[in-house]
Structures are given as structure tokens and as C-alpha cells.
Design a binder for these strands. Structure first.
Length: 584
RNA sequence: CGCGGGGUGGAGCAGUGGCAGCUCGUCAGGCUCAUAACCUGAAGGUCGUUGGUUCGAAUCCAACCCCCGCAACCA
């Protein structure tokens, strides 16, 4: 019986290009996880989209002389294109600017407001009397009180690195107009986490031992410190507006004195995307199984899938998994669950929150501004998507920081992927092609019992590990089977046996081919393009993934025929040439 | 100051009480079906430091040193 699995992938912020760090942090592991579950016959809904609102977008817009929605329109299609290139198999990849997202955001807001988890409170904020407007911190600059550096932002001094709190900055002015700003008290809506504390405690305790240890402890640390009220509105044009008409129907104490300029703050709204995207997916209909519509939304719904979002969100047997980088840990382990709990609608809570640390680039942080980054599209184009997927998947920062190095890339690809897995497949198929003309059939064939044990163990091990989010170890258990395969090849010396004992050679050939088709399945979550190629060579069209059909298990054929000429799946990299990348 | 993570043979990592393991690299041998790929064997570690608990510690406790992330208006 299949499960409803929601694979929730963090929403990339669309103020720049996606680099290899993003891929390793959450995008690739989420795709591997989703692909695995589809092979198991689970009904997987994988959703995400572009996170479009907030100050960084407007900052980027100002810098480029564009409007915020032009910035979104510039980067969103790039991201979509990149995801297609990498084979990331979203059911819906949307944006936070859709009507559905706004509607659902309003629903969640009103639920929380009615349930008294959203309250009105006051805070001090920078205000420009001349412009009659409150300004976000990013738009206020002045003199750092610690080192006297000029033109520093009001939240952190870039010169001395110190964090500043409100009011510390000397002679604060608006970055836009140069007008003087002052701190002024203003009303905002706050999410009252103090009221959610005990429910969140229960939620965390239930997951102790299930989540990655460091993730749980980090969340636990935050919760033990005690969560405070957190503002969920701000003075900001580029944001989702409040549902003011609905709010005005509520009692006076649930209303702000002045709604002018107050919009929903991006952190509150972006995570709601997991819920709104599921609904948008449900509502969408398409004649094609997979398409990108005019607004650049990727949509995919297969015949065998349920199309009702409620089966994922309101059925307690559904399982929700989240993928993100460590900067998002608190939002997904505590804040978002808090929002769901406070809604009191019975929404499914996260079953596991897979948080990754960051991947560095040659020992230093990826940085767009310092031009220390790898173009995700280019590297895949140059060296092959699966080759890049392999290296990243083998080096995910699951428990500690990882490091992308060109030397590691070459060594890993050449000495592991190509030499071990690629070579096993190639030597088997080449032998089959030259000595058997690509045809074999053995009616009462049974696979070598030791090999069978190893194959079954690989399926079992990889399944166990991937389900726990140990994507790196899952890959290792597949590579282990390939190593065992090479050993089997050597020990059985088929190239000798075939000269003296055809019958015995046939048996070995069958064993090897059956090993290969099982490897083709095992590698599918990680190396989807190569797996498809391989499948085409020895089986024909790839078996369709179907809800309720579990193909994550060993299978053995009694005959094989090559469908095409044997091709090399992974090309060996030119070490010298790749290492030249370091110079750039 | 606070909340977390990490420190294990040349590199990357696993290992939370019982003779220190894996992948890669290195060295030696073998094989020749294969993308100079594959197989076998060997060398290589006082498990960050110091002290403690224990019959026994990489693993538990204490103190300390080094590296990294987060710190709530950069999601």
C-alpha cells in the first residue's frame, strides 16, 4: 500500500543565480529522496517555488534599476531552466506571487488571528518624518557607534562586523532620500510563540531520535531558550497585503489602529508556500503530463496520482519531509510547525526536517559578491549532469560542512563513478556485445545465490538510509554493490571460462546482466539520466514509475538482448583540464 | 555572553564502553573482458590536549585549545 509523501523543498530566494551550494544544501537531496519514494510506489507530491517578496529583492531591484517583479521575472525562469537541466522532478514549482498563495496566506493568517496566536503589539522602528514612512533596516544608514565608520547599515557594521541594535546607529538617515530618520513606536501583528511553546515542546519530543541529532539539538536549544513574540508584519511595499476587509469584521482588539503601509512579512508567508502550492497543484489542470505555462510555473501530475491536496495535508497518515540549508533550520523546525499547530485545522506536521550544513568552495564560502561561485548550469553542461549529481551527492554536508574542490571532483568521478560503477557496466555490456552478439536466453536460470544476497542487501540498505535522509550513505551502499560486482567479474573469469565451458559462461553472463539491470534501478534516484540510458540499452523503454507499484526490489530476467550499441555512460574527466578551473 | 556543529592514518569520512573501520591516494603483486579500468596483498593512526570514572574509553565525566554555523528586520 502506498503512502502520501509530501516532499517540501525550501523556496529559493530569487535575487540571484543558484550555485552549487544551493544544490548540495537541499535541491539535489530532495530530488533523490522524491525519486526514491516514487520508485517505491508512493504518491509523492514535491513542491516548491520562488520566494519572491522581501527587502533583498527590492535591494536587488534598486541596484539593477528594475522593479521587484522584474527581478522575479528575471531569475525565476533561470531557476526553472536549471532544475530541468538537473532533472529535478517537481510536481509544482511555482512562485509566492500567485493568487492561490495570497489566498492561503490570508487563510492561515486569519486562522491564527482568530485563535489568538496572532496578537497586536508595539515595537520601535526607524521612521522618516519627511517621507512620512517607516523604513526597513536595510534602508537606514549612519555612523557605527563602535568604530565610527560611515554609511553603515543599521543592523550590522560591515567595517567592524558588530551587530547593532535599534537606536545605536549615530545620525541615522534614509538610504533612499538622505532624509533624517528617528526611532518611533509603531503597531504590528506578532505571532505569539509563547502560547505555542508547550505544543512545540510536544512536537519536538515526539521527534527526538528521529531527526538528525544536531538538527534536533539545535531546535531544542532554541525552544529551551524560549521563543518570543515575533513580528509578522512590516512596512514594506513589496509584500503580500493584509486581509484588511476580513480583519475589520473581527473585534476591535484584533485590529491595528493604522493599517497604512503594513504588509505581511516574508518569513511568515514564504513557508505557507508548502500548503498553498499543494492547493495550486490540485487546482491546476493540464492536458500534458508535464509543462511549463506562460508564467514559468512547472507543473506535473500523472494519471495515477490523486489530485486532492487534502490527502497530503489533512490526512494524518501522510508523511511530510522538508529539505533546506541550515539558515532555515529554526523556521522549519519551530516556526512553521507553530503556524500549522496554531491554525488548528489538523494540518500534517513535518515528519522529518532534513537540514544540511553548507558546502564551501575550495575551502571558502560561496559568495556571489566576491565572485567565488560555480555556475551550476555551466558545470553540468561541461561535464555532464549525472557526473555533477554524483560528486555532490557523495559529498553532501549532512552533518558537517562539506567542501567542493576541483581535485575532489576529478578524483571522485574518475576513481569511483567511472572506474567502479561505470566500468562494471561497460565491461559487462561490451563482453555481452562482442561474445554473445547481445543475445542470451537461459530458461531455467537462477541467479548465483551470493550475488543475489548482495543485490538484496543493497536495496535494503539504500532504502533504509535514504528514508533516514542519509543520502550520502545510501549512495555508498549502491557503490558497494558495484564493487562486489567487479570482484564477481574477476573471480569468475568469464573471459577464460567462455573458451572452455560455454554453459558455465552463460550462467556467469546472466548473473552479470541481472546485476546490471538491478543497478540500473538502484542508481535511478541518484543518476537518473544514466539510469535511463542504461535501461534503454538493455531493456528498452524505461519502466514507468507508478503509484502503488513498488519497483525498488530485485528482479531477475531469463533473457537479455541489447537494444542498441553499447555506449559509455560516464566519460572520464581530463584531470589537467578540470584543474585549470581553479585558475578562474 | 548565548544556542549548536566539528577536531579519527596523506585526503574525505564512519564508528557513543569491549582487539580502530570505510572510500580514495601510496607501495608491491596478479589479471587482460573493460574508460591504463578491475582483483589481491601491504605500509600508514599515541582517535585535538590534560586529568578523571571503569576490569576495559575514540566512545562516559571535567577542564582547556583550535575550526565553523546561528543569534530572531539578510528567512
Amino acid at each position: 500500500m502506498h503512502k502520501k509523501v509530501l516532499v517540501s523543498v525550501a523556496w529559493p530566494y530569487v535575487n540571484g543565480d543558484i550555485h552549487v551550494g544551493h544544490l548540495s544544501g537541499y535541491l539535489l537531496p530532495a530530488d533523490i529522496f522524491a525519486r526514491y519514494h516514487r520508485l517505491r510506489g508512493d504518491d509523492v507530491l514535491m513542491v516548491s517555488g520562488s520566494d519572491c517578496h522581501g527587502t533583498p529583492i527590492t535591494v536587488e531591484a534598486d541596484k539593477q534599476g528594475l522593479t521587484p517583479d522584474q527581478v522575479v521575472d528575471k531569475y525565476h525562469p533561470n531557476d526553472v531552466k536549471l532544475f530541468k537541466q538537473y532533472g529535478f522532478d517537481y510536481n509544482l514549482y511555482t512562485k509566492t506571487t500567485t493568487a492561490t498563495h495570497k489566498r492561503v496566506t490570508h487563510e492561515v493568517f486569519l486562522d491564527l488571528l482568530k485563535n489568538d496566536f496572532i496578537v497586536v503589539d508595539k515595537m520601535e522602528q526607524y521612521y522618516s518624518p519627511d517621507d512620512d514612512a517607516f523604513l526597513p533596516d536595510r534602508y537606514v544608514e549612519g555612523v557605527c557607534p563602535h568604530c565610527n565608520a560611515k554609511d553603515q547599515r543599521s543592523d550590522q557594521c560591515e567595517n567592524c562586523g558588530r551587530w547593532l541594535s535599534d537606536g545605536e546607529l549615530i545620525d541615522p538617515v534614509s538610504k533612499l532620500t538622505g532624509n533624517k530618520v528617528v526611532l518611533k513606536e509603531t503597531e504590528h501583528y506578532f505571532l505569539d510563540f509563547e502560547k505555542l511553546q508547550s505544543e512545540l515542546r510536544k512536537f519536538l519530543d515526539k521527534n527526538e531520535g528521529e531527526w538528525r541529532n544536531w538538527v534536533w539539538k539545535e531546535a531544542d536549544g532554541w525552544l529551551r531558550e524560549g521563543l518570543r513574540k515575533r513580528a509578522i508584519t512590516r512596512d514594506m511595499d513589496w509584500a503580500i497585503e493584509l486581509p484588511i476587509d476580513e480583519i475589520k469584521k473581527l473585534p476591535k482588539e484584533k485590529q491595528l489602529n493604522d493599517f497604512a503601509g503594513k504588509k505581511i512579512y516574508v518569513w511568515f508567508e514564504a513557508v505557507i508556500g508548502y500548503l498553498s502550492a499543494a492547493q495550486e497543484w490540485s487546482e491546476s489542470t493540464g492536458s500534458e503530463e508535464k509543462y511549463t505555462n506562460d508564467s514559468g510555473i512547472v507543473y506535473r501530475k500523472t494519471e495515477d496520482q490523486s489530485s486532492d491536496w487534502k490527502e497530503w495535508w489533512l490526512d494524518s497518515s501522510s508523511e511530510h519531509y522538508y529539505f533546506m540549508g541550515q539558515d532555515n533550520l529554526v523556521f522549519h523546525t519551530l516556526m512553521w510547525p507553530g503556524q500549522l499547530i496554531g491554525s488548528q485545522k489538523g494540518y500534517t506536521l513535518p515528519k522529518n526536517v532534513f537540514v544540511n550544513k553548507f558546502m564551501n568552495y575550495e575551502g571558502k564560502k560561496f559568495s556571489k559578491s566576491r565572485n567565488w561561485t560555480i555556475d551550476s548550469a555551466k558545470i553540468a553542461e561541461k561535464y555532464g549532469v549525472d557526473v555533477v549529481r554524483y560528486y555532490i551527492a557523495a559529498n553532501l554536508p549532512e552533518n558537517k560542512e562539506a567542501n567542493f574542490t576541483w581535485e575532489g571532483f576529478v578524483d571522485s568521478v574518475n576513481n569511483e563513478l567511472v572506474a567502479n560503477l561505470g566500468n562494471l557496466i561497460n565491461r559487462t555490456l561490451k563482453f555481452f556485445e562482442s561474445k554473445y552478439n547481445g543475445e542470451i536466453s537461459l530458461s531455467d536460470y537462477e541467479i548465483d545465490s551470493n550475488l543475489q544476497k548482495e543485490i538484496d542487501a543493497a536495496y535494503r540498505q539504500a532504502a533504509l538510509l535514504i528514508e533516514k535522509g542519509e543520502i550520502v550513505n545510501g549512495l555508498e551502499s549502491i557503490m558497494k554493490l558495484a564493487r562486489q560486482g567487479n570482484k564477481f567479474f574477476d573471480e569468475n573469469e568469464i573471459w577464460q571460462v567462455i573458451k572452455t565451458d560455454k554453459e558455465k559462461a552463460d550462467q556467469i553472463m546472466m548473473d552479470l546482466l541481472n546485476l546490471i539491470i538491478n543497478l540500473a534501478t538502484l542508481m535511478r534516484p541518484y543518476l537518473p539520466f544514466a539510469a535511463t540510458e542504461l535501461h534503454k540499452m538493455i531493456v528498452g523503454d524505461e519502466t514507468d514509475v507508478q503509484v502503488d507499484t513498488d519497483i525498488w526490489q530485485s528482479r531477475y530476467a531469463q533473457e537479455f538482448s541489447l537494444k542498441s550499441e553499447v555506449k559509455i555512460l560516464f566519460q572520464k574527466l581530463d584531470r589537467e583540464k578540470v584543474l585549470e578551473e581553479r585558475e578562474n
